[in-house]
Nucleic acid binder design. Structure first.
Length: 593
RNA sequence: CGGGGCGUAGCGCAGUUUGGCUAGCGCGCUAGACUGGGGGUCUAGAGGUCGUGGGUUCAAAUCCCGCCGCCCCGACCA
């Protein structure tokens, strides 16, 4: 391909709207253009990158035995009402009506459509297991699209769904997808961490997210530096504190709780400012409805309650925050002054509160708080659990080392669904005993555009993008410097033909531009290998070779440049493959343990 | 949805406070000349519903009101 024909509108200046590095660079490199909030055009070289990601995904999904199909984005809302997600998805669901007043949704995901399909097509255990996938544009009415192509209203997603006859099959299907995902992200050349994610009522290790570490990531993960424990912040468990006893012995002669007037101070911040104490010396009582029943959770003032942990603490299947009237009715105290002392509803206490010698809490009376409250003496500690979100510095639940907190971009998610949809929508089959039972499902998503964004977030420098070889729009950029010199142009074309014959994508910068312009653009669009052919070089019998990842260039003999450069390309390509292979082997080994 | 900011040429911006002549500058673009290894120089050009609708005024990019769009923080994110 000739640069002059390639439509690569690079920008010298950064568009003012862009903040995230990937957004800035993809715009400047002429890879994407914004149409509106959360809607982007992929220009030719950006589309080439996206297509390469798609190809890798497709190859690995096929290799894992999944079957590709294509479902409509246009879906009758009746299906969504059937599954119950018309309500739970809410405003995120993009909806429209046809001229004949039929009500449709644009698919944000396809559990409903695929379950509808499978309930018709799968009648026997003999048809199971089966995993189906598609690569398709999804729509979500995001309240706030962000960070360029990272969070958009319209995006490309690979979504797969497994259907199994029993839990063993589900586990195998899940493991196959998990392994395929590792291979996909390895081949894409992006760094990633696999973290445990909140998985709903099924529990266990049945949901994992694939996260690319990045400060622009919208997700927070906590990781143990010592063992391999890593989890989404919402999911992470917190190890028991190593030194302090879980429940300190209550000092019998400690002074009784002292009520203090705290007029109009409701928030933890206001209380702390007023009483000149730190948030860590206080505790807040939160009221939830656990399966409709009011319950209370007490966490330290500087901590966040984790709703999933609270839900499990009360053995509930649903948990919602109680609104102000409900709270007042259940506790008799106004919001902002709630406390655990003589509370009338079931109480669970976070471990870190139980470990405090004294604590400042609400007085269950308007404008009153209590200081010097002793856990265990002034309120019961019969339900002490981990109830809060983990933060950096908390002990690892497996080995006790202090965990660290990082931001990440979620590029993939694997999830055991169980029978949620098959029950709701009646997708049953006959097992080998002739019993009709709901099919067991798993779902597996990859954000294709996000891989592109994440690759840029993980691979860039001051000069531009640094693509991994496998995702680069072109593998090689050949830059002849003197367009009017036939020898230079012939050498460039000869190399172009050789590389293309060997299966590499080649871009020839045939623009009549000064070398500086060509070099700057080459760095900006991030082509892994740059070949410079110049009069000067040819006079010396050399062509210049520079890898985007290297600080400086080196020369090879012009006479044997084709072979020498192809050898370098092969080495790099094989290097990436070797990394993938080694990781595959070590994963297999750790599974074997 | 709450808070903040912005909308003037493809991109980056000035001009708006205090209304006033053909609305400017840099980059990019077109033509030409010189130049030729890290975004060159010069000359000559093209390119604008000043987001949009209304109002005030002799006169509106500028003042007033409505609407639309975009960005950031927060809320939200099966």
């Amino acid at each position: 391909m000739r640069w002059s024909k390639a439509l690569i509108p690079t920008l010298k200046e950064t568009p003012a709207d862009a903040v995230a590095p990937s957004h800035k660079l993809l715009l400047r490199a002429g890879m994407v253009r914004q149409l509106g909030a959360g809607a982007y055009t992929y220009l030719p070289i950006g589309f080439r990158v996206l297509s390469k990601v798609v190809r890798i995904i497709r190859e690995e999904m096929d290799a894992a035995g999944a079957l590709e199909l294509l479902m409509p984005a246009l879906q009758p809302v009746e299906l969504w009402k059937e599954s119950g997600r018309y309500e739970t998805f809410g405003d995120l669901l993009m909806q429209l009506k046809t001229s004949s007043d039929q009500h449709f949704a644009l698919g944000p995901t396809h559990e409903e459509v695929i379950t509808d399909l499978v309930r018709d097509l799968v009648r026997s255990y003999k048809q199971l297991p089966v995993t189906l996938y598609q690569i398709q544009t999804k729509f979500r009415d995001e309240p706030r699209p962000r960070f360029g192509i990272l969070r958009t209203r319209e995006f490309l997603m690979k979504d797969a769904y497994s259907f199994d006859a029993n839990v063993e099959q589900l586990n195998d299907s899940y493991d196959a997808m998990y392994e395929a995902y590792c291979r996909i992200f390895d081949r894409c050349g992006i760094p990633y961490a696999i973290v445990e994610a909140e998985s709903g009522p099924i529990g266990g290790d049945s949901s994992h997210e694939f996260m690319v570490p990045s400060s622009t990531g919208e997700d927070t993960i906590v990781q143990c530096p010592a063992c391999n424990y890593a989890a989404n912040k919402e999911r992470a468990e917190i190890g028991a504190p190593s030194e302090a006893p879980a429940i300190p012995a209550a000092t019998p002669d400690a002074p009784s709780p002292a009520p203090v007037e705290t007029p109009n101070r409701r928030t933890i911040q206001e209380i702390c400012d007023f009483l000149k104490i730190t948030e860590a010396e206080t505790a807040k009582l939160l009221v939830f409805l656990a399966d409709g029943r009011p319950v209370a959770a007490l966490v330290r003032g500087d901590h966040e309650a984790n709703e999933a942990k609270v839900r499990r603490a009360f053995g509930a299947t649903t948990l919602t925050q109680a609104d102000a009237p409900t709270i007042e009715k259940a506790t008799g105290a106004p919001m902002g002054f709630l406390g655990p002392v003589e509370i009338k509803i079931p109480l669970a206490v976070d471990r870190s509160v139980a470990a405090m010698p004294t604590v400042v809490v609400g007085g269950n009376k308007l404008d009153v708080h209590l200081t010097g409250v002793v856990p265990g003496r002034d309120f019961p500690l019969d339900k002490v659990l981990d109830l809060r979100n983990a933060v950096g510095g908390d002990p690892c639940p497996k080995c006790g080392r202090l965990m660290v907190e990082n931001q990440g971009i979620e590029v993939g998610h694997v999830f055991k669904l169980g029978t949620k949809y098959s029950r709701a929508m009646g997708a049953h089959f006959l097992d080998d005993k002739g019993q009709e039972i709901p099919v067991i499902m798993g779902c597996y998503g990859i954000g294709v555009n996000r891989i592109v964004a994440a690759a840029v977030e993980a691979g860039h420098d001051d000069n531009g993008i640094v693509w991994p070889l496998s995702l680069a729009p072109y593998h090689v950029l050949i830059a002849p410097l003197q367009l009017n010199n036939p020898a230079v142009m012939e050498a460039a074309e000869a190399l172009e033909k050789k590389f293309e014959a060997a299966g590499y994508d080649v871009l020839v910068d045939d623009r009549d531009q000064r070398p500086g312009v060509k070099f700057k653009d080459a760095d900006l669009i991030g082509i892994p290998l740059r070949i410079v052919i110049s009069e000067r070089g040819l006079k010396e019998g050399t062509v210049e070779v520079k890898w985007r990842t290297d600080a400086s260039a080196h020369n090879v003999s012009a006479a044997t440049a084709d072979e020498a450069i192809l050898a370098e390309l092969e080495t790099t390509r094989r290097g990436m493959e070797n990394v993938s292979a080694e990781r595959r082997i070590s994963r297999a080994a750790s599974r074997g343990q």
